[in-house]
Computed example of a mutant assay.
Amino acid sequence: MTDALKRLSEEGVAIWLDDLSRKRITSGDLGELLDQQHVVGVTTNPAIFQKAISQGDGYESQLADLATRKVTVEEAVRMITTADVRDAADVLRPVYDATDGRDGRVSIEVDPRLAHHTEATVAEAKQLAWLVERPNTLIKIPATRAGLPAITETIALGISVNVTLIFSLERYREVMDAYLTGLEQAKAKGLDLSTIHSVASFFVSRVDTEIDKRLAELGGEAEQLRGKAAVANARLAYQAFEEVTASDRWAALAKAGANEQRPLWASTGVKDPSYPDTLYVTELVAPGTVNTMPEATLKATEDHGQITGNTIAGTYEQARADLDALAAAGISYDDVVRVLEEEGVEKFESAWTALLDSTQAELERLAGGED
């Protein structure tokens, strides 16, 4: 175990891996990450599965069986992805048990094509929870307008949720409200709130990518604001989290056994090579958070990450000033987060379509080209 990752964990940051493949599970690599690099959770998304399955390692036998059965490509993809999540959940089960369900979790996302359909999202969440059938699963639901009531309804059913694709502070507050409302409904039904968990995945690097592009178009002094927006945005999200967990509404739920919906820093791989490759790790250290990292970011943090303690406390005034400076320069925050949400859904839909297409091609090849 490395000192940097150990220190990060000791500061109250749960380290999750933003990647999964069958080879990573069967080779023992995932288990090694748990044992040696302080990883205590896994997140997936359609792009991750598309990459894993398209590379083919470990999927041939199952694909051949599915081709023989002549299943639809949608069923094939669900059988493959839920199998991986189920097996990963089993690897992580000791962490889940040791942390009373707080960590040791694996996330799987609803079909991104349902992002703007509330009831279909809830139905898909129920189906995924049933298919995986592991208590340490989180069902990922995007924080679209239609996703908010789906989050409430899913939580009210007692299903743990990872809310994904959060970019704006306003939407994040709506996500927290949706979670609390779901808990209140679950409590009214007599459900055990202590068994329900949630994280809210607040995306980081994409904010800088979009705003930096706009700053470059403005040119001049505006470019001095590059690389500040994403960290400032995330720090203010943590301020919002602190405000909600200090409320009387939360206190009543906590008394009934509810778990906090931890902020999860997602999209933490640095896109601009001119920035430190650990930027979205070292600058977002605070207790009660999760940082899900692609493997490259995990290794960079292990190798040269400087963990100096809580780097969010005492930063709210500066963070607000940074966002205000962007507004003064002509950057519309509301437009940025709208574009990012729309693009986020589109990217996951595209990855899902690519996954379906590549899987269909494999099924046809293994079936000998039969219809």
Rank of each mutant, 00 (worst) to 15 (best):
D111N: 15
A89L: 08
G104A: 09
L92I: 07
L92M: 09
F167N: 03
R171K: 14
N136K: 08
K140S: 06
E133T: 11
I166G: 05
D97F: 00
D90A: 14
E174R: 09
E119L: 01
I141L: 15
K140D: 11
M176E: 11
A88K: 03
D100A: 15
V77Y: 05
A76L: 05
W130E: 15
L92Q: 02
Q127E: 14
E153T: 14
L148V: 13
D111H: 08
V110P: 01
A125I: 10
L114P: 08
T81L: 00
R171M: 01
E170R: 09
R113G: 13
I108L: 15
A123G: 15
A83H: 10
E170K: 13
E75Q: 13
A129P: 01
A143R: 07
R171N: 03
I80F: 06
T121H: 03
T72A: 12
R93L: 15
T99C: 12
S107R: 06
E153K: 15
V73Y: 05
E124D: 12
R171W: 05
I141N: 13
L114Q: 12
E124V: 04
R102W: 01
L138H: 14
A83D: 15
A83N: 13
R86P: 00
E119G: 00
D100H: 10
T152W: 07
A123D: 15
I141F: 11
A98E: 14
A89K: 06
E119A: 05
R173Q: 15
L148Y: 11
Y172M: 01
V161R: 05
F167Q: 04
P149K: 09
T121G: 04
L138P: 10
E124K: 03
I166F: 09
T164P: 08
G101W: 01
A129E: 02
T164D: 09
R102M: 07
H117Y: 11
G104F: 08
D111M: 06
T81P: 07
G104H: 07
A76Q: 03
Q127N: 14
I108Y: 03
R145K: 14
P135N: 09
T137Q: 06
E153L: 08
A123C: 07
V85R: 08
F167M: 07
L131Q: 14
